[in-house]
Measured scan of single mutants.
Amino acid sequence: KELVLVLYDYQEKSPRELTVKKGDILTLLNSTNKDWWKIEVNGRQGFVPAAYLKKL
């Protein structure tokens, strides 16, 4: 499993997105899109802007 660090808080703006908090370490599911990465948070899957995340 690949992990990502959340660099900035992000509030979901659609049902396909997820809310994340700065400092969270989460599972990366897909990073093929350069702008939006798919991650998992508490069993939910969704997208967060790639600029808000850093691969560990």
Rank of each mutant, 00 (worst) to 15 (best):
Y52C: 07
E40N: 04
G43N: 10
L7A: 03
N33L: 09
Q11Y: 14
G43L: 06
Y52R: 05
G23M: 03
Q45C: 09
T32W: 09
Q11D: 15
L18P: 01
I39Y: 00
E40D: 06
L56Y: 11
E17C: 07
V20Q: 00
Y8R: 13
L7V: 07
V6C: 07
K38D: 04
L7F: 02
E17H: 07
K22R: 14
K22Y: 05
N42P: 08
S14L: 07
K21P: 01
V20I: 09
E40P: 00
K55I: 14
Q11W: 15
K54A: 10
K13W: 05
D35A: 13
V20R: 00
L29T: 06
S14P: 10
Q45V: 13
E40W: 07
G43D: 09
G23Y: 04
L5A: 06
G46K: 02
Q11K: 14
E2G: 11
T19A: 06
R16T: 11
L3C: 08
G43H: 12
R44F: 08
A50S: 13
E2I: 12
V48M: 05
E2M: 13
L53S: 00
Y10A: 01
W36P: 01
E40V: 08
I39S: 03
L53T: 01
G43I: 03
L29Y: 05
I25G: 00
W36L: 05
T19K: 07
K54E: 09
Q11P: 05
I39N: 01
N42E: 11
L29N: 03
K34G: 12
S14W: 08
W36M: 07
D35T: 12
E17S: 08
T19Q: 05
Q11T: 15
G46I: 06
V20T: 02
K54P: 00
L3W: 15
L28C: 07
L18V: 13
L5W: 06
G46Y: 06
D9Q: 03
E12G: 15
R16N: 14
N42V: 07
D24Q: 15
L26C: 12
A50P: 05
D9A: 06
A51Y: 10
W37I: 02
W36S: 04
I25R: 05
N33G: 11
K1R: 11
K13S: 11
L3E: 08
Q45L: 07
K21L: 09
V48I: 08
K21E: 06
K21R: 15
W37Y: 06
L56D: 03
L18C: 09
K13I: 09
K55N: 07
L3R: 10
K1Q: 15
E40Q: 09
Y52L: 10
W36Q: 04
K1S: 12
I25N: 02
L56P: 02
G43F: 06
K34A: 14
L18I: 09
K22E: 08
V6R: 00
N42S: 11
K54F: 13
D35Q: 13
D35W: 15
E17I: 04
W36V: 04
K55F: 08
L5V: 12
L5K: 06
P49M: 03
D9F: 04
I25D: 00
V6D: 00
A50T: 07
R44D: 06
V41W: 13
D24G: 05
Y8I: 10
V4P: 00
L18W: 03
D24N: 08
T32R: 12
V41K: 15
V6L: 02
V20L: 07
Y52N: 11
V41Q: 14
A51H: 11
L28I: 05
Q45E: 12
A50R: 11
K34E: 13
V6S: 02
L26K: 02
V20W: 01
L18M: 14
T19C: 05
P15Y: 09
E2N: 13
Y52M: 10
K38F: 15
L7G: 01
W37G: 00
S14I: 05
N42H: 10
V4A: 08
L3H: 13
R44I: 11
T19Y: 05
K38L: 15
L29P: 00
L3G: 03
L7Q: 04
Y8N: 10
N33S: 12
L3K: 10
L56T: 06
E12W: 08
R44W: 06
E40K: 05
T19V: 06
G23W: 05
I25V: 12
I25Q: 04
L56S: 03
K34T: 12
L3Q: 12
E40G: 09
Y10D: 00
G23R: 02
A51G: 12
T27A: 09
V41G: 14
S14V: 05
V6A: 07
L18Y: 03
Q45Y: 10
N30F: 08
L5E: 09
N30G: 07
K38W: 14
L7R: 05
R16V: 12
W36F: 10
K38C: 10
